[in-house]
Amino acid sequence: MSLVADEKKSTAEYRSERPAWMEKPRTVTRVAKALALALTVAVVVVPFWVVIATSFAPGQQLIDNGGWALWPQEWKLDAYTSALSNGTTTRALFVSLGVTVVGTAFSLVSTVFLAYALARPGVVGGKPVMLLILFTFLFPPGMIPSYLVVYSLGMVDTYWSLFLPVMVNVFNLVVVRGFFQGIPDELYEAARLDGAGELRTLFTIVLPLSKAVIAVVGLFYAVGYWNDFFRGVMYLTDTSMYPLQTVLRGYVSQGDGLNQGLTDEGTLAQAPQAMKMAIVVIATVPILCAYPFIQRYFTKGVLTGAVKS
């Protein structure tokens, strides 16, 4: 028993030892790393906290402090009430939610089917199609050709223009394809021996094993659709169809937003800086709420899918 215990102890000690080429960190090094980490966290957290505090601060405090607040003297919801009661922000919020949900669903279905087809050996035209897809990744189309294509398809001033032109992302496609290629060939052969077709193999074997990469790619798509403002400016002329990020961009960059039809005089009567920060918080919180549920899939999904191309 003692020999077994000693062997386990020596194994544990061996595993805990640092490699021979790696020096033991000194106290100064540890302190420097801790300070660097604390500084990085502060650089990220402090501006976001200032945005939140400003959105809740009363108007007089913002006027006295030059438009910003580090801690509200009184926590008020006036900015959020005004932002959500004028109709424009609320409508834009629902537009962004709809585009994000529908666009992510379309993108995931298209990416999964295309990646599965390109991952299987012997597909007719598989290599030329893959090269064509990679070519679009290296040489993306310009703004004017993209607009002409969308215009020729009659999608200008429609919600389709907000997600159909970018429905398949090449990077996400390559990641999913690499993940599918990493699945053992024995599973595909066993499915064929059982008489399963390609669709049945995809839904019963491949997809259950690919939850991690699908979750990560789905989050990438959702964040992309939610944060996009440029396509709203480029393809939509009706401001009532604007998604939330386009409204936020117009309101923050234009200041008053009256030229864009994004606010009204009742809204401008409130503290404008608090209104801006409230819309920023409204536009940021949904993604922050979704991220913790997907975070645990990041390492497994991205690294495993990127090992094989």
Rank of each mutant, 00 (worst) to 15 (best):
M1T: 15
V4I: 12
E7V: 12
K8C: 10
K9L: 15
S10R: 13
T11C: 08
E17N: 10
K24A: 14
R26M: 06
R26W: 03
T27H: 07
T27C: 11
T27L: 11
A38W: 02
A42Y: 05
V45W: 11
V50F: 08
V50T: 08
I52L: 15
P58H: 09
G59Y: 03
D64I: 14
G66S: 12
K76Q: 14
A79P: 07
T81I: 15
R91Q: 11
V99E: 10
G103C: 04
L108A: 02
V109R: 02
F113H: 02
F113E: 00
F113A: 00
L118S: 00
F137E: 02
F137Q: 07
P140V: 04
P141N: 14
G142R: 12
V150W: 05
W160P: 09
S161K: 00
F163Q: 08
P165C: 03
M167A: 15
N169D: 12
V174L: 04
G182T: 00
P184T: 01
G195Y: 04
L199A: 06
T201W: 09
F203R: 07
T204F: 13
L207Y: 03
S210D: 01
K211A: 07
V213A: 02
Y221P: 07
M234S: 10
L236A: 11
S240Y: 10
S240F: 12
M241K: 13
L244H: 13
R249Q: 15
Y251N: 08
S253I: 14
T263Q: 10
T263S: 13
A269N: 07
P272H: 08
M275K: 06
M275R: 14
V280S: 12
I282E: 09
I294K: 03
Q295W: 10
Q295K: 09
K300E: 15
